[in-house]
Amino acid sequence: MALPLGLLCILCFVGSVISQDMTYEEYMAQIQACPQECTCPPNFPRAIYCDNKGLKSIPKIPTNTWYLYLQNNLIEVLSADALRNATQLRWLNLNRNKITSEGVEEGVLNAMPHLVHLYMDDNLLSSVPSQLPASLEHLRVSRNRISKIPAGVFIGLDKLNLLDLQGNKLMDDAVTEVSLKGLNNLVQINLAKNQLTSMPLGLPPTMTQLFLDGNNIEKIPIGYFKGLPKVAFLRLNHNKLGSSGVPKNVFNVSSILDLQLSHNQLTEVPVIPAGLEHLLLDHNMIKSVNGSNICPVSVDTIDDSVNESVPRLRYLRLDGNEIKPPISRDIILCFRLLTSIVI
Rank of each mutant, 00 (worst) to 15 (best):
T197S: 15
F233D: 14
L228A: 07
N185T: 11
V231T: 12
L191A: 09
M199F: 08
D172C: 05
S244T: 14
M171N: 11
K193Y: 12
P229E: 08
L236S: 03
N184F: 02
L234F: 00
P204H: 07
L234R: 00
S244A: 15
Y224G: 04
N194A: 07
S198N: 11
P221A: 06
I220K: 00
A192Y: 00
L212M: 11
L201N: 11
R235Y: 15
S198E: 12
P200V: 08
L212C: 04
F211A: 06
P221L: 04
H238S: 14
L170T: 09
G202Y: 00
V178P: 00
H238Y: 12
V175N: 04
L236Y: 02
N194Y: 04
V246Y: 00
N249Q: 11
N184S: 14
Q195D: 12
F251P: 05
K181V: 07
L183R: 01
F233V: 14
K230G: 02
M207D: 04
G245P: 09
D173P: 01
L210T: 04
Q195P: 01
T206K: 02
L191T: 10
T176E: 05
A232D: 09
L210W: 00
V231Y: 01
M199N: 08
G202Q: 05
N194W: 00
P247G: 09
H238A: 11
D213E: 15
L241I: 10
P204S: 06
N185C: 10
L191F: 03
Q209K: 10
L241Q: 05
N184A: 09
L196D: 03
P229K: 03
P204N: 09
V178M: 08
S179M: 04
I217Q: 03
N239A: 10
G223Y: 02
N190S: 13
M171A: 13
V246G: 05
L203W: 03
L212G: 05
N185R: 10
L228P: 04
G223M: 06
M199S: 08
F225C: 08
I222D: 14
